[in-house]
Design a protein around this nucleic acid. Structure first.
Length: 886
RNA sequence: GGGCGUGUAGCUCAGCGGGAGAGCACUGCCUUCACACGGCAGGGGUCACUGGUUCAAUCCCAGUCACGCCCACCA
């Protein structure tokens, strides 16, 4: 017996444990079933479940459960990402609290600390996924720093290096002075900052009374200036080209060069060039043969290349001091307020510095070509398709990918340097040693230094679709589950992750990593801001689960999965779907109380009673909508179909229709109805199971207590052999409209809810009379009638009247009804019909419409007009009957 | 500066060439033997604006306005 109230906390966790213990989540690997593969985007091992995860994981879980129940060999591959910077920061903060830092601890001990932290806290998010009801194949859970995955990373690096697709280069990188590492372009975010624009004067070397004025937002970088550029066609400066200025403070003599980079419209038209600290200036410097002078330390303090008084100063302290010095010299022309974009590191949270360093780069341009073609040719499709534009736009202008990071936590780059700097890139230290011996022609051990840097976290993530399967080992999983079917993710990691998986997958596997990329909405906070740990605006889905249950949260997310980019989650909506679960719970209790339990030999195609034939058809249509919705990633349509069927069709109408039958005298019909009710409910619960796995499982248990199988492992309903009975559908539709109409009239006339009244149909067709006879008891019950019959004789005085198809509905309400109001009401109704008919007449008189519109549309309009006219005329008659002769 | 998206009932959002929808909120009635986390009935919208295409436009196209996001090296 079900408990009287629905309490998700009473069974959700317990059910999950039972599912997991039963092993149903596991992929079978061998066997004949068609494989289905979805790669879980690995959450950061530091992470905890946020709303974005909840949405992402729910959608994948719905797909995994659906495929599994359809008999597919579903692999939903779970795991976590080592999240280099984020994780290292967590442990570094711990060290800071202990009054130490990673340099004092040392690299090896530090990495041990991180592993220890991971062992202790790294499992939190997977526990939260279980709470959400996610059912990936936990037995195959991977971590990007696992031994196997690390081997894949090393092999990919070495192969790409030997193919010339990974190389070492000295160039400007985005340097994060807080984290003291290079980061990629994608990890830089531009922020609008209110700053100043300083106009500084640089005196000409050979004519110190003449100045060139340059404008800059970063005066401190002048310490590294090695030139001033003007546009070659700029008449103001033409005579200065080739001359030099003497840099104030520094005293360095630097040339004035002509370069098209200088924009005559900007500032003074002359621009200072700091090749070591600006990406544009670096290019200008290369073109013009200017020196490159680095004036910053890795912490963004001024280094010894600058004059003594500035050394060791923070970049912003140095800025003030430089401006003061210029001011003292009378070399500040003016200072403007200036709003401009400043690049910030997305993790470190401080402005990045363009910084000249040696780094490892991946030739993304070459790898991108096949990845672009794969989407162009449709081998991989984005859903919605519009995201392909975003993908193409980025891939077609892709820059070299800086893959080295000056961190300790991550995959250490498999490169070793010989005494003379020769680099050996090999899969292991032993192989590097062998290569070095061969290179140097010696048998003696060569002193090699392992490159201290680690790889960008996304480098290993890029291999996820095949490294998790066991690659580079030759294992059956690789052939069976690659390429995957679908990647479900949010748009914000199309560049970071999707694009890179495409590149690596195509290069190493020769095949796309997934056929479909389903991009869902990004869950934002109430201000439309992207949720992030650093902003502290993360909503905790676990709290919602605690209050409303995992099913309510899941159903909410699935229902909202069709909307645009933003999801602003409303608690009220979650509450509404909790109520839906309660409704299901109570409906099942009702069935239980009425002995509506599944009959093993029940065949829905053989039911005879129209009510039952109707509900069978409704189930069939609902199932089709659910399948279509899931097939095309229109999750919300599947959810809406189930919600409507469950609440409106099944509970509000079918269960009410059948109450008189269950308590009636015809035991054959009652038995068929009990069986049909149980069948319809069990189909509903079964179809709803992927979306609301917990409550449906609990209800299933009560519906079919003898069943050995849990719902999670049962075959998905296949109703292909069942058809919709159109007669039953029309007939029950009519009954619904009749009851609704009577209720509306009662309500409008203020008939007391408990009062039984009579209802008559004037001029009904024979088929209508038959329908009435077939369903009289339930119509009487649901409309609260003492009698309902065709009208014999005249319409009683003081009747409320309305139209229902070809008949007029008559409710004798003498004494209750206000005839003046009733006349006004009928006139209003007639007016509405007249207006509709007028519109249709206009349309049907339009020759263009008749000539060009499809015949079926024209016909449909004619039919509508005829129906409207019947209704209007019935109402006119009704009005005439209660209007005194003039 | 480029690109993308969104503007539909009070709120959150579906729909997207031929009859304006849902949930919540709101109003009235109802504690009827599954459910008040409920039932029944109801009010509420020139589908942002302006043009165009079409026999027909909330839906397609162009432009305008508003909001949001992504990308971009402008001193």
């Amino acid at each position: 017996m079900l408990d009287k109230t629905y309490d998700p906390k009473a069974f959700e966790s317990e059910l999950y444990a039972e599912w997991e213990a039963s092993g149903v989540f596991g992929a079978s690997v061998d066997g004949n079933a068609q494989p289905f593969t979805a790669m879980m985007p690995p959450p950061n091992v530091t992470g905890s479940l946020h709303m974005g995860h909840a949405l992402n994981m729910t959608l994948q879980d719905v797909l995994a459960r659906w495929h599994r129940r359809r008999g597919h060999d579903a692999l939903w591959q779970p795991g976590t990402d080592h999240a280099g910077i984020a994780t290292q920061m967590v442990v570094e903060r711990q060290l800071a609290r202990e009054g130490t830092d990673r340099w004092s601890v040392g690299r090896e001990a530090f990495i041990d600390r991180v592993w220890a932290w991971k062992a202790e806290s790294g499992g939190r998010i997977t526990g939260q996924l279980r709470r959400l009801g996610a059912t990936p194949d936990w037995s195959r859970e991977r971590f990007t720093m696992d031994e196997g995955l690390s081997r894949a990373v090393v092999k990919v690096f070495v192969d790409l290096y030997k193919q010339g697709l990974i190389y070492r280069d000295k160039r400007l990188v985005n340097w994060d002075p807080a984290l003291q590492t290079a980061i990629s372009d994608l990890e830089v975010e531009q922020k609008e900052v209110k700053g100043k624009l300083w106009h500084l004067r640089y005196p000409l070397t050979d004519d110190p009374d003449r100045f060139v004025t340059v404008a800059t937002t970063r005066p401190e970088t002048m310490l590294g200036d090695t030139g001033v550029a003007v546009h070659p066609d700029d008449d103001r400066y033409r005579d200065l080209i080739g001359k030099t200025v003497r840099l104030p403070i520094v005293g360095r003599e630097i040339p004035i060069v002509a370069d098209a980079y200088a924009d005559p419209e900007q500032g003074s038209g002359a621009v200072k060039i700091t090749p070591a600290h600006d990406f544009n200036d670096f290019e200008v410097g290369k073109r013009q043969g200017l020196a490159t002078i680095n004036i910053l330390t890795p912490q963004a303090r001024i280094n010894d290349n600058a004059p003594e008084p500035y050394r060791g100063l923070d970049r912003y302290e140095a800025r003030n001091k430089v401006v003061e010095a210029f001011d003292a010299l009378g070399m500040v022309e003016r200072i403007d307020d200036h709003v401009h974009m400043v690049p910030y590191g997305d993790r470190g949270g401080v402005p990045i510095e363009p910084f000249l360093t040696d780094q490892w780069y991946c030739d993304a341009e070459t790898l991108a070509k096949p990845a672009i073609e794969a989407v162009e040719s449709g081998k991989t499709r984005f859903a919605p398709k519009s995201w392909e534009n975003t993908y193409f736009e980025w891939m077609r202008t892709i820059q070299p990918w800086c893959i080295s990071r000056q961190l300790w936590w991550g995959h250490q780059i498999p490169a070793w340097y010989g005494p003379d700097g020769t680099v050996f890139v090999e899969c292991s230290a032993q192989e590097a040693q062998a290569a070095a011996k061969a290179h140097y022609g010696t048998d003696a051990e060569v002193a090699l230094v392992h490159d201290p840097d680690v790889l960008d976290t996304w480098f290993s993530s890029a291999l996820w679709p095949f490294s998790t399967l066991g690659w580079p080992d030759e294992v059956p999983e690789v052939g069976r589950y690659y390429p995957g079917d679908v990647l479900v993710t949010a748009f914000d990691i199309i560049f970071f992750w999707v694009a890179r998986m495409m590149m690596m997958g195509l290069h190493f596997m020769g095949e796309v990593p997934f056929r479909t990329v389903y991009i869902h909405a990004l869950v934002r906070d109430e201000n439309g801001q992207k949720m992030s740990k650093s902003k502290g605006n993360v909503i905790d889905p676990l709290e919602l689960i605690e209050t409303y249950g995992a099913d309510a949260l899941r159903f909410t997310l699935v229902s909202m999965a069709a909307q645009g980019r933003d999801i602003k989650l409303s608690t009220q909506r979650v509450e509404g779907y909790r109520n839906f679960a309660t409704k299901l719970w109570n409906a099942t209790r009702y069935c239980e109380m009425n002995d509506c339990v599944p009959r093993p030999d029940f065949d829905p195609s053989t039911v005879r009673h129209r009510i039952n034939r109707w509900i069978v058809g409704e189930v069939v249509e609902t199932a089709a909508k659910v399948d279509a919705g899931l097939e095309h990633y229109r999750f919300n349509e599947a959810a809406a179909a189930l919600y409507q069927f469950a609440w409106n069709t099944f509970c509000d109408w079918y269960l009410e229709f059948t109450k008189p039958i269950l308590s009636g005298g015809d035991t054959t019909v009652a038995e068929e109805t009990r069986a049909t009710t149980a069948w319809a409910l069990s189909q509903l619960i079964s179809l709803l199971n992927p979306l609301m796995p917990f409550v449906t499982e609990a209800l299933w248990e009560s519906l079919a207590p003898g069943e050995a199988d849990r719902l999670i492992g049962r075959r998905w309903p296949d109703l292909a052999g069942l058809t919709v009975d159109p007669d039953a559908r029309d007939e029950m539709g009519w009954v619904v409209r009749l009851i609704t109409e009577i209720r509306a009239m009662r309500s409008e006339m203020n008939v007391p809810a408990g009062a039984s009244i009579a209802a008559f149909l004037k001029d009904p067709a024979l088929s209508t009379v038959e329908r009435l006879d077939r369903h009289r008891p339930l119509i009487m019950r649901l409309a609260r009638l003492e009698t309902v019959a065709p009208l014999v004789g005249e319409v009683p005085v003081g009747s409320a009247q309305d139209v229902l198809d070809e008949a007029t509905l008559v409710l004798p309400l003498a004494g209750v009804i206000d005839l003046d109001r009733e006349r006004a009401r009928l006139s209003r109704e007639i007016g509405k019909w007249d207006a509709e008919i007028g519109k249709l007449d206009k349309k049907l008189a339009n020759r263009q419409f008749l000539a060009k519109a499809p015949a079926d549309v024209v016909e449909a309009q004619r039919e509508r007009r005829a129906q409207f006219e019947t209704s209007r005329d019935r109402l006119k008659e009704a009005l005439a009957r209660i209007t005194p002769a003039a």
